[in-house]
């Protein structure tokens, strides 16, 4: 251990005040400007692994791709399984393999967009890496952020991962068809979401049975209508 006193040059204190996420923020701002110019609604999906992001997208693409030109950017650690599950449903799919990185960053989205004609799209989903911690800290330039919570995960997820839920515009409670066998306490879960994320809309659905999907589409439609007005969102 070298103490400052042993070194001959005088000690300098450099006050930097440097934001460590500044680079991501710049990329996110650039993405956001690009999305706005193209008039595309960009929805970032966050959840723990296995909450049903891909299943929700499978159903959504099958139902909506005829109506709205849609694309999906999928972030996965190692595989392109999610991208393959989503293929053949009328949407352009751009997979990003993040390797060991536990989240998507704005610069990765910027690069993935090079493979898309944004001006022809209405809707772009970003399926983030399954992880409720790290992705919450990274703004991707999205218009809306959705956090998924499945009925098999437990009602206290919002209390355990407050940052992710606090950043959500909507919380989608998935797998409602499994609520009863899982002993899911619906009111308690909703109360926890509201306590941690009072700003978030709550939508309950099952991508398997289709229950609640219409409400989800209406939410997307409302966001599409107001997307140009959603300028300085975060």
């Amino acid at each position: 251990m070298t103490s400052p006193q042993e070194t001959s040059p005088p000690l300098k204190v450099l006050h930097l005040g440097k934001d460590l996420l500044a680079s991501n923020r710049q990329h996110a701002a650039a993405n956001r400007a690009r999305f706005q110019a193209a008039g595309v609604l960009v929805v970032n999906l966050l959840s723990a692994p296995g909450s049903g992001k891909t299943a929700l997208l499978e159903r959504t693409l099958s139902d909506l791709a005829d109506r709205w030109p849609v694309a999906v950017i999928t972030g996965d650690l190692q595989t392109d399984n999610d991208a393959r599950r989503l293929a053949g449903r009328g949407a352009v799919i751009v997979p990003i393999a993040t390797g060991t990185l536990c989240h998507l960053e704005a610069s990765m989205i910027g690069r993935a967009c090079e493979e898309l004609d944004l001006t022809r799209l209405q809707l772009l989903f970003i399926e983030n890496v399954g992880n409720l911690v790290c992705p919450a800290s990274y703004d991707l330039g999205e218009t809306r952020r959705i956090v998924l919570l499945s009925t098999t995960e437990g009602e206290d997820k919002p209390l355990k991962y407050p940052l992710a839920f606090k950043s959500a515009d909507a919380v989608v409670i998935t797998k409602t068809d499994l609520a009863e066998p899982a002993g899911f306490r619906r009111e308690e879960a909703r109360a926890n979401v509201t306590a941690v994320a009072p700003q978030a809309d709550i939508i309950e659905l099952s991508a398997r049975t289709g229950q609640g999907m219409q409400e989800f589409y209406l939410w997307l439609e409302a966001a599409l209508v107001s997307r140009s007005a959603a300028a300085v969102h975060r």
């Binding site: 400052p4 005088p10 204190v13 450099l14 006050h15 930097l16 005040g17 460590l20």
Partner: peptide, 15 residues
């Protein structure tokens, strides 16, 4: 939230 999201390199002491 007004504060609590910071992630900053405040200062460096160097010679």
């Amino acid at each position: 939230v007004l504060r609590g999201l910071e992630l900053e390199l405040l200062a460096v002491e160097a010679s």
